[in-house]
Simulated scan of single mutants.
Amino acid sequence: MLRANVLNKLTPLSPYGLGILLSLALGLMAITVAKTSFFSSLGISALTIAIIAGMLIGNTVFPRFADTLSKGIDFSRSRLLRFGIVLFGFNVTIQQVMSIGMNGFMIDCLIVTLIFGTAYFIGTHWLKLDRDTTILIGAGSAICGAAAILATEPVIKAQAHKISVAVATVVIFGTLSMFIYPLIYPYLNMSEFDYGIFVGSTVHEVAQVVAAGDAISPDAANAAVIEKMMRVMLLVPFLLFISNFYRRQSLAVINEKSGISVPWFAVMFVIVIGINSLNVIPHSLVVAIKSTDVILLSMAMAALGVRTHIGAIKQAGVKPLVLASILFCLLLVIGYSVNILIE
């Protein structure tokens, strides 16, 4: 407490200032480290590094300054997160989606539906995992890794350690996919383009998609990224579904009825995609916005890590990893089958 009071006197910032600055420092550090050749070659994103750095701080020095830093940390992991998800729409254009066509869209829809549905059934019924953890792991595996997990958090209001557990599964199995997919390519009987669609529709993170596609050819990487961006767009209907599902569950307890709850940032995400598709914003500005978005999401991830307690992760046990491993196998098998069937 004494150290926190001294820190307050030395720093003439708002109650949010120091916590936001800590999130910013950790986020910028993560971005810098992610750009190094070692982490870049592994496809480990700044978001992953940020949450690890945040957890290191959160489980060592943070408790001594929690009174001073908490408001800013919580602001970063909530408000800045939502804003970052909105700006993430600048990574997608309708033109990209159209270039893949209806087949690519159908592949993504089927895989997202099948993988998430399976995740929910296995997680809640077979493994007896709590609903929040199951949904977060399912979202990360089915849609777009850590970004999907972060986007789902404001809707279900999950605890920090559950988000960290879900992100860990994305890191483990997404990293595995970068090495496994290129190794099995010769046995898939697919063209480079079709392989790219397969990668984009089944691999977890965008960075991992790029790595797995580029290992075969630039054409495979381009197809993979575009397919992946189409999959990212499915975040919107997914968030609307989850929001309505949670609302109905809570209303059932009190026997009331209400309309669909729409997460505002999901709507803004769609609007931003539309604006980005019109090409009315200068390219240099779009690049700057995307760079800012990486900073915001890294800050949110770092703040999330700070609020994550190692003890809570240990308490989660091996069940989340079991669920994620099953989903990884299903992404390979079901994903391949769907791609062959539709293509």
Rank of each mutant, 00 (worst) to 15 (best):
K9M: 12
Y16C: 03
G17D: 01
L18A: 11
T32R: 08
T32L: 06
F38L: 13
S41W: 01
L42P: 06
S45L: 05
L56V: 15
G58C: 10
N59H: 07
T68Y: 07
L69M: 13
K71Q: 15
D74W: 01
S76F: 07
S76L: 11
S78Q: 14
S78N: 14
L80P: 03
R82I: 10
L87P: 09
N91S: 14
I94M: 14
Q95E: 14
M98G: 07
G101I: 11
G104Q: 05
G104N: 07
D108M: 02
C109N: 08
T113D: 09
L114G: 07
F116D: 04
F116I: 12
F116V: 10
A119C: 11
I122G: 06
D132I: 07
L136R: 09
I143L: 14
A146V: 15
I149R: 02
I149L: 10
P154R: 08
K162S: 05
I163L: 13
S164L: 03
A168M: 12
V170D: 03
V171M: 10
G174H: 08
I180K: 02
P182K: 07
L183G: 00
I184S: 02
Y187I: 08
E192I: 02
F193L: 10
D194R: 05
Y195M: 08
G196K: 03
F198I: 09
V199D: 00
H204C: 12
H204F: 12
E205R: 08
E205Y: 09
V209F: 08
V209D: 06
A212I: 05
A212K: 08
G213K: 05
D214T: 10
D214E: 14
P218F: 11
A223N: 02
A223P: 00
A223H: 03
M229K: 02
V232A: 05
V236A: 15
P237M: 10
F238Q: 01
R248K: 14
Q249R: 14
L251S: 09
I254M: 02
E256K: 14
I260D: 02
P263M: 13
P263L: 14
V267Q: 03
G274S: 09
N276A: 11
V280A: 10
V286T: 12
S298C: 09
A303F: 06
Q315G: 01
K319D: 09
L323E: 00
L323P: 04
A324S: 15
F328W: 15
S337N: 04
L341W: 14
E343T: 11
